[in-house]
Design a protein around this nucleic acid. Structure first.
Length: 464
DNA sequence: CTAGGGTTAG
């Protein structure tokens, strides 16, 4: 029965357990956890429901199970019933719930869990502290991350330092991230392979190519960490974003492991930024060999062609993509106003206040163009009239979310926007202007990082 | 038996 899909391990675990303990909560929680690891959440829940004496570990295992299988709402629901009818959450439970919070649209939930952690005296537990640092950073407040890191009295370990370094890097504070890494080394905390992913990526986003290379050597020679695919990809990204495409290409061709999707994807996106069609073709072809379903490869390749006006080639790629049935993910942005999350797609006409939103955006669009903003019509993938392109750009989801935020909040309020994809070039430039025109701070969360727009510039220093 | 940190892209 357990012979397939790794089930043998579970069976073995149970047998071992039942030899050393009585066959009760512990063994069943072990079984529950086994199902969770296989992604079989329903049988896991059945076991949980059938348990008579659920202890804190069983509750936590079930909550974690939901989280790891992407079922945030179920995790939250179960945690809430744990608070009323279950045992007191421990540091494992709270750390897991903070991870759940990190992936939500609003920071409020995370703050509530922080409150629970303080009241139960778990704030200074390492795992809770680490999760707090990440939760606040992903929620947009790097200040709060730093506050936890610096002022909560706790025994910080490698994960703590790594979390803070990565958080700083994601907020465009590459120099501070590197400073912190140096401090970490100075006081004798050992970096591990993930620390180095963060450090090299910090160098990448700060444009420190040479320093990134030095750290890559340090990692191998001093800390004896063997580079993984992640590190090689980080290095390609380091060269590529800096525009050193030849170096990036050399690196990928001669690195000692087979380049993966991320490696080629990274090179491809750099080719797009620096408009190198020839290399983009090579990268995209190699990428599609490994992963023919990769919508990003088609889009990026089409994008590279569009960027230099090769419309026919761009159209050919889009057709190929369609023929192969590969779907492009739709971009969407959302903003929380009071207790409601408002979601926008590109050219979204579904919001009840769409008219006011469009009018607001049109006004802003005019105003920022007057101040020198030039729409990046190259970013539009089709061969259309400039005027139509212009309108498509002005209705990207993040711009609509911002327009809505502006009319729904008092002056000077910081706007916090979330987006499911990377912010496009045009939006990035437009939002800089908007922040200046309306005198507001606008924080936009990408899939992976933060942009703090203020007074006409962005924290990423346009290096993202 | 339960926990915390990750690089590309759309």
């Amino acid at each position: 029965m357990y012979s397939k899909s790794g089930g043998l391990d579970i069976a073995q675990k149970i047998v071992e357990r039942s030899l050393t303990t009585n066959l009760n909560v512990v063994s069943f929680t072990c079984l529950l956890d086994g199902y969770v690891k296989l992604g079989d959440i329903n049988p896991a829940r059945k076991i949980f429901d059938s348990l008579k004496d659920r202890d804190v570990v069983a509750w936590t295992a079930m909550i974690v199970g939901y989280f790891q299988n992407g079922l945030n709402n179920d995790a939250i629901e179960l945690f809430q019933s744990m608070l009323t009818v279950g045992p007191k959450p421990n540091n494992y439970t709270l750390a897991a719930m903070l991870s759940v919070s990190s992936s939500l649209a609003s920071i409020d939930h995370g703050k509530q869990i922080h409150g629970v952690a303080i009241r139960s005296g778990e704030e200074s537990s390492v795992s809770v502290g680490n999760a707090l640092v990440t939760m606040y950073a992903k929620g947009g407040s790097i200040q709060n991350s730093r506050r936890v890191f610096d002022h909560v009295s706790w025994n910080k370990d490698t994960v703590s330092w790594t979390s803070m370094i990565i958080s700083l890097a994601q907020h465009g504070l590459g120099e501070e991230a590197i400073e912190l890494f140096e401090k970490m080394l100075a006081i004798g905390i050992k970096p591990d392979h993930i620390t180095y992913v963060g450090v090299i990526s910090a160098c990448t986003h700060a444009g420190f190519v040479e320093q990134g290379q030095n750290y890559f050597s340090l990692m191998q020679n001093v800390h004896k960490i063997k580079p993984t695919h992640s590190h090689y990809s980080c290095m390609i990204d380091l060269f590529g974003r800096a525009g050193l495409l030849q170096q990036a290409h050399n690196f990928i061709e001669k690195m000692p492991v087979e380049p993966d999707v991320i490696a080629w994807g990274s090179l491809l996106s750099s080719c797009k930024v620096h408009k190198n069609v020839e290399l983009a073709k090579i990268a995209a072809e190699r990428l599609l060999l490994i992963d023919p379903e990769n919508s990003g490869a088609y889009s990026a390749l089409a994008n590279a062609y569009s960027a230099c006006g090769k419309w026919d080639d761009a159209a050919r790629i889009r057709r190929l993509m369609k023929d192969r049935g590969v779907k492009k993910d739709q971009g969407s942005s959302w903003i929380q106003i009071k207790n409601k999350v408002h979601v926008f797609g590109a050219e979204d006409g579904s919001h009840p206040q769409k008219d006011v939103i469009y009018i607001t955006m049109a006004k802003l669009w005019k105003e920022i163009k007057k101040r020198g903003f030039v729409p990046d019509t190259d970013a539009v993938l089709h061969d259309l009239d400039e005027e139509v392109k212009d309108q498509i750009l002005s209705r990207h989801s993040e711009k609509l979310a911002i327009a809505f935020g502006l009319i729904s909040t008092p002056e000077n309020t910081t706007l916090r926007i979330m987006k499911n994809l990377r912010v496009c070039n045009d939006c990035h430039s437009a939002i800089k202007f908007i922040s200046k025109v309306v005198g507001r701070e606008i924080v936009v969360r990408d899939t992976t990082r933060f942009h703090h727009f203020k007074d006409g510039s962005c924290s990423c220093g346009d290096y993202w």
